[in-house]
Amino acid sequence: MMLSSKGFILVTTLILMLILTCITIPMLVQTSLSQKLAGSATLAVQLKQQTQSKHVQQLQQLKQGDFESRVFTVVPCPALYAAWSDLSLQCEWHQLRTAGGALHHQHSVTSFLVRQSLPEGGRDGLY
């Protein structure tokens, strides 16, 4: 009788411990996960900001002529308030893409710009 009651306590304790472990471990996992989750948002913002500031820098460089975008085509000019006859003003469509991020993650910013230039001695007339 004594033995069986001793065994009962042990089994109960073990079961209780098991239950407690079952509760604690997921909590621990959950905590670490949420920590990671919280960190990832900051990381994402950081990465985004990095890419964005790089993009802004590249835009500046492009405008100053220190940097060349690889993709550009000659296009009809966008509508301007101070409009020009088509052939006097030349427009180029530039696409500037800046990518950043880690191994499994990519973040990119793409800007489309129109470069308007007046070629020397451009032809007259509206077309």
Binding site: A102, S108, T110, S111, F112, L113, V114
Partner: peptide, 19 residues
Amino acid sequence: SFPRWQLMGTYHSEEGAYE
């Protein structure tokens, strides 16, 4: 003032997951 640059639009894109 030439060449003049006009920004027509900016697009963001994200791919993949964080580890």
